[in-house]
Design a protein around this nucleic acid. Structure first.
Lengths: 157, 157
DNA sequence: GGCAATGTTGATAATAATTCTAAACTAGGA
DNA sequence: TCCTAGTTTAGAATTATTATCAACATTGCC
């Protein structure tokens, strides 16, 4: 599966005549394998630990490249730094406002929602819609428990 | 209307024992009146021009405060800097990937969409959902015209 | 496989964005 | 009015990001 993603992404880049350097492959693979929504700094230090030398500038350049080709998306949770997430298969994000954790949701309804959203948007704005980023905020189950909100959780709409 | 928003926001802050300093009021009023999605730098220079002294640090502090109380939301279009938008009445954003323009959409269907989204999310993740940020990407009508895509636009789903 | 053209990397300098600090100030309650 | 905890200010410090450019590596071609 992850292997498929990787091959698919490589093929897309190749199609666009993007040079497949070892660094780019490494970073791409890292992002496919780690759905931890890492920041540039996290990617950099992780890779430096395992593999050897890779420049922070290269990480910046590569994530931007991947964002440009829509293989990866940028996220901000609120702690200042920017996070990245491989976006090969459509999904959306749920951010915990208490601990900052970001969870992926691969809901089957996602496709329907985005389609609907695209239609509404086109009607209202006449934009040519290409994609949608959805970010839901709330409290993760852990934080609900910590804050003693477990019972409330089931009541709230 | 804008006056209502302002009073409503002030009341909310007051309720939370937030000190209503002139700087905070000024910045809040600015954000309510300007739906231009300004960056901190833009707010700062605009206010410095009209009004007199206000520190950039205060602008940073204040927008964060307003974000914390969900009166304002953070946006990134892609040019690096962070933008802010008064969020008194629910809406979502459409970003033009060509020129970076951000358009607000106050679709009546917005409420239904977010409700649906909240339900799906809760089922899938057991998060306690509080709100949703939706960001649609595409090409604005101007850029479609510039790029000669007007005919295509009507064909694409 | 080997070669050349051209894009990429790496280290670091430069710049931009954001936060911190400490002293001075002030909103709001008593 | 007075007090005080919270806020503002200016600038320093820190952090994030981009630019530079010589050395290097990928790709397409033979």
């Amino acid at each position: 599966m992850a292997q498929d993603e990787y091959q698919h992404a490589l093929a897309l880049l190749k199609e666009h005549r993007v040079r497949l350097t070892p660094q780019r492959k490494t970073i791409l693979k890292y992002l496919i394998d780690h759905h931890t929504h890492p920041s540039v700094e996290m990617i950099y230090s992780d890779l430096k630990e395992h593999d050897d030398s890779i420049s922070i500038a290269t990480v910046y350049n590569t994530v931007r490249l991947l964002v440009d080709y829509h293989l990866v998306i940028e996220l901000k949770n609120g702690d200042g730094s920017t996070h990245y997430d491989y976006f090969g298969r459509p999904h959306y994000h749920v951010v915990c406002d208490n601990c900052g954790k970001i969870t992926d949701v691969f809901a089957s309804q996602f496709a329907d929602l985005t389609k609907e959203l695209g239609q509404i948007t086109r009607e209202q704005t006449h934009y040519l819609v290409t994609r949608s980023d959805i970010e839901v905020h709330g409290l993760c189950p852990d934080c609900q428990a910590k804050l003693g909100l477990t019972t409330v959780a089931t009541e709230v709409n």
